[in-house]
Design a protein around this nucleic acid. Structure first.
Lengths: 200, 200
DNA sequence: GTCAGATTTCAAAAATCATTGAAAAACCCC
DNA sequence: GGGGTTTTTCAATGATTTTTGAAATCTGAC
């Protein structure tokens, strides 16, 4: 539209935009891989988030210099996580993908999925293990009793986590943002801890 | 001590104990690797946690069937994370390692480290990127403005996370357990969300 | 200062995980 | 239902991470 801007040319602006996007994509990818998500998948997500635009497979391929198959798989995984959506354009048979634009909604989806995929299975294992180790009060050697105690401590802790995720990240939840804001406002009195052992 | 127990022999109890421990170690290792921690490192941690006993390198090697070098590296990483401690036994030159026994204290250490290692660097990158993209109010093409808005949204969100971790997981923090319990008690009214977009 | 035991380091090997590309399947407009 | 387009799948390849084991370093008692 306007041929040139005040303080920079369109070309300059475009270069800047691309560079900033690339850097964000790289950072997000790095963080993703530290958290057990494949770097590329995180990068695809970052690209879709940072542009905000729906993009098709070919555009993603080209921008990230990755193969068609890789895009297909990453995009499918992101759909499974619920952090991107499939959209369409009139008169275009290609699939377009668009990232959830609200950061809190995005984090909520991630939290929900991680709990479902990783915490819940752990809890189930813990239950199974717990069934192995009877607690016939007397007769049970003290080692078994101590084991049970430790197992129970872990279980209790992760069950609480799972319940919290239901409450705040679940489909009817109150929202992660609410939770975070609440916590941030909470007074910090080291003495007030509910559990005995505290500030190390 | 006592030659036999009521409902099971010592041998039975020992076998049970070992199996339950092994299963816990395997589960913990699986969970660790889903979260970007090496499986072995998580397993060493699980072993030390579940036995509760201080163990030396040779004992860990044998129990987990891994090499000396691997134990050395895993143990060092766990020390860095602050989830195990080095101890000693009189008249024994070997190092012994013992896991933090309080689950919440342990989770707190993990949360603190992850924020420090992964969130804080992300925030720094975001700052740097943000400096690339000036906001000279007018003149700035709308794409750059939109980018800045998205970058800011992510920054705000992770900054809140970082602050929270200071508050609850930091050395003078109020304790993760407190935070979790508080949240669990909070009423769940979907309408109460502070951010506009909510229950999907 | 020396020595034996204990730990760390690190290059090479093994194992795991991610990526490609081409073939197959699905899709859809006429 | 044919023909072109788009997407998915998956075996093979490539890249990365993890593990090993032996050499180097450290440690503390004597």
């Amino acid at each position: 539209m306007a041929p040139a801007a005040d303080s920079m040319t369109q070309a300059e602006a475009a270069r800047l935009l691309a560079e900033a996007q690339d850097r964000f994509i790289a950072s997000w990818g790095r963080m993703g891989s530290a958290w057990g998500i494949s770097r590329t998948m995180a990068e695809v997500h970052a690209l879709l988030y940072v542009t905000g635009e729906p993009m098709n497979t070919d555009e993603i391929m080209e921008r990230l210099a990755i193969s068609r198959g890789n895009v297909s798989m990453s995009v499918r995984a992101l759909l499974d996580w619920g952090v991107i959506q499939k959209t369409h354009k009139r008169g275009d048979r290609k699939d377009y993908f668009q990232a959830e634009q609200d950061v809190w909604t995005m984090l909520r989806a991630i939290a929900r999925e991680r709990i479902k995929r990783e915490v819940d299975p752990l809890l189930q294992s813990l239950d199974e293990i717990r069934e192995l180790t009877p607690e016939t009060t007397k007769a049970t050697p003290e080692d078994l009793a101590a084991l049970n105690q430790r197992l129970d401590a872990v279980t209790e802790c992760f069950e609480l986590l799972s319940v919290l995720s239901q409450k705040f990240a679940g489909p009817t939840g109150a929202g992660l943002k609410t939770a975070a804001k609440l916590l941030a406002k909470m007074p910090t009195r080291s003495g007030g801890d509910a559990g005995g052992k505290d500030a190390s």
